[in-house]
């Protein structure tokens, strides 16, 4: 596996600390979301990124404020990593009126345009061409914005993946495709149904792109490949495909106990948990135990506050039901 091994990460230590804070926040937030699901307060379905936090944190740290994120239904982490506050995200999961979309979207469709989070898409593969469109618009308007599009390994076998890669390549679009390869689709191992070992990186080559596989459980390594790809995109050199190797600690969605995965595999990947790994690296590089504990305690307090605020949110009013089908704010289809 051509995994990038020599990593440096952000050059200033404060950024490293904030990248740690981001990972801790994603971890603690989603752990809380899971608890609230067990209490039956989170309805419907939800897909957690526990174990995959380094990818969201590494990319969000490298991106500029007006770059765009396109996420999947597994989008809590990407949304939070771009700076969306915890309370509206949690309230959205709880179906409250103070939710990010006032309860109209739910866990799978988190969107915050003001933070560059241009949507979370729940139909496999759909958002790859949509991210191309945003990148096309940046190119046309001459801004230096980049669209970054996250998806899973299983999503590399749907047609829109291939259509999007080709379009991005021929139009040299400022778009970065990020495959979070957590080895499993829902309940099937992706390599069992895929013709190549690295479903994204091996295919990228066929579209004239570089073959990039990175350790997705190392925030510094992710930050480095992200920075390089962002720079390429801004320089007009076109798209990149990055395959980040990672593992989800839990099941595919909220109710999945993930019994189909071999115990040794789970143990092996738990040992590569990105957060303790990054923590000990920071200690090696000069952070103090107190510094890191303080970050963890601050995040814990944030999660507590967000939980209280989300639970205190009202029920979305009936006035929302018929709103915002159309740009005029209404839903009328006749006169």
């Amino acid at each position: 596996m051509a995994t990038t091994t020599v990593t440096s990460g952000p050059t200033d230590f404060a950024t490293k600390l904030s990248m740690y804070r981001s990972q801790v926040a994603l971890r603690q937030f989603e752990t809380r979301a899971y608890d609230l699901f067990l209490e039956n307060l989170v309805k419907g379905t939800s897909h957690l990124s526990l174990g995959q936090e380094a990818i969201a944190a590494g990319f969000a740290t490298a991106m500029k404020k007006d770059d765009w994120t396109f996420a999947t239904y597994r989008g809590h982490a990407h949304t939070l990593a771009r700076g969306v506050p915890m309370t509206p995200v949690l309230a959205e999961l709880l179906g409250r009126s103070n939710g990010l979309m006032a309860g109209k979207g739910g866990s799978m469709h988190l969107t915050s345009v003001e933070h560059g989070v241009m949507g979370s898409y729940a139909i496999i593969g759909a958002h790859l061409p949509i991210a191309c469109g945003a990148a096309w618009s940046a190119q046309y308007r001459g801004t230096d914005q980049v669209a970054v599009c996250f998806f899973g390994d299983g999503s590399t076998n749907i047609g829109s993946f291939h259509e999007a890669l080709n379009l991005a390549a021929i139009w040299k679009l400022p778009v970065i495709f990020v495959c979070e390869n957590n080895l499993w689709m829902e309940y099937t191992r992706t390599t069992e149904v895929t013709s190549v070992e690295h479903p994204a990186a091996d295919r990228a080559v066929a579209y004239g792109l570089e073959r990039i596989v990175v350790d997705g459980n190392d925030a510094d390594a992710v930050y480095d490949v992200a920075s390089a790809a962002l720079q390429r995109a801004r320089a007009g050199e076109g798209p990149s495909m990055i395959e980040a190797m990672t593992y989800r600690h839990g099941g595919h969605s909220r109710a999945d106990p993930a019994k189909y995965r071999p115990e040794e595999e789970v143990a092996e990947w738990l040992a590569k948990d990105p957060i303790p790994r990054y923590r000990s690296r920071l200690l090696d590089e000069g952070a103090t135990e107190e510094q890191l504990s303080e970050i963890e305690a601050e995040v814990a307090a944030q999660v507590e506050l967000a939980t209280e605020e989300a639970k205190a949110g009202g029920v979305p009013g009936e006035d929302l039901l018929m709103k915002d089908v159309w740009a005029d704010g209404g839903s009328s289809w006749r006169n």
């Binding site: 241009m118 469109g133 945003a134 618009s137 669209a147 379009l167």
Partner: peptide, 11 residues
């Protein structure tokens, strides 16, 4: 998809 992404970002 390209039309959609472009429309949501100013075109």
């Amino acid at each position: 998809g390209a039309a959609m992404g472009a429309a949501m970002t100013g075109l």
